[in-house]
Design a protein around this nucleic acid. Structure first.
Lengths: 153, 153
DNA sequence: CCAGTTAGTTGCTTGACGCAACCCAGTGTG
DNA sequence: CACACTGGGTTGCGTCAAGCAACTAACTGG
């Protein structure tokens, strides 16, 4: 995948990509947003190599995008949560998701639907509720399986 | 960077990343959006290896994100332009740029400012004009050098 | 006591990327 | 005319990251 630096680039897009542009990073963030919190859960959901997952989680923690909390001791086991900084990646994920839905739709339609928790309205590519018009944030929205997920049923 | 497939992922985010998640791809799109149109221009601006740039441009053309137009013949020379599909990546770029500005600001502030062409208002992380409130698209906005670019002067 | 779960780490192999050199067609310079 | 330069690549080589499988370690359940 990606090396994580773009030397000579003075640009916030490049800086963002240095952090979350590595292969798997954004998908890990997406899955943690959708409630996957544990190592094996993420590994199975993503199909990523375990060493790579381990490296990415460490990097995301270093970058203050994820944090690790023990949910038991002896042996210590951890869960991964998004920080505010991590949650703020939501608009970028929504933009990529909308773009993918628009230009690479599966035959059955989009695999995931994002809806506003409060009013159930669909969420636009800008992360705005098409029902009530509010500008949403990560915690205001929920992902539901869409029609494109039928074959996995 | 990234291999360009995420096997087993049924998700529009993953599908988008298969296309534009490769190292350099989004930065190429960004630069073409900012008016870099020719091979050498892109190569110098990005500092990417020429063979990699060549491969990325081909891939982006295959994916109908860029198109190549001859601007002279004998010898044939080409310029690269964004298609509608490519221009529609703008919200994703803006989201990443805003996130980068918020969390990895340079000491001098953001290196690039995005403004609404029509009214000069700043553009929010959702690609909305903070001056007039309109939901913007790629062609409605312009990038200006920001305070963080001072040292390059 | 053995199998299973969770959360990794280690080692090996493959393949993508970075770098430098080369190629080719035309253009400009002395 | 010779030579260098420009634009747009391609080729070859070395390195580093990713994929895969095996191993470790601490505990749990039967």
């Amino acid at each position: 995948m990606l090396r994580n630096d773009y030397p000579g680039q003075v640009c916030s897009i490049a800086r963002s990509l240095e952090i979350v542009g590595e292969r798997w990073s954004l998908l890990i963030v997406r899955d943690v947003m959708n409630g996957h919190r544990r190592f094996d859960q993420l590994q199975k959901a993503l199909g990523v190599a375990r060493n790579v997952l381990s490296a990415r989680l460490q990097r995301l923690i270093e970058e203050d995008i994820l944090e690790r909390r023990a949910y038991q001791s002896n042996p210590e086991r951890y869960e991964y949560f998004l920080t505010e900084k991590g949650l703020d990646l939501w608009p970028a994920l929504i933009a990529l998701l909308s773009w993918g839905d628009r230009y690479s739709p599966g035959p059955e339609g989009p695999p995931m639907l994002i809806v506003h928790k409060e009013c159930g309205g669909a969420v636009s590519d800008r992360g705005i509720c098409e029902g009530c018009g509010k500008v949403l944030h990560a915690r205001d929205a929920r992902a539901l399986p869409g029609p494109g997920l039928a074959k996995a049923a």
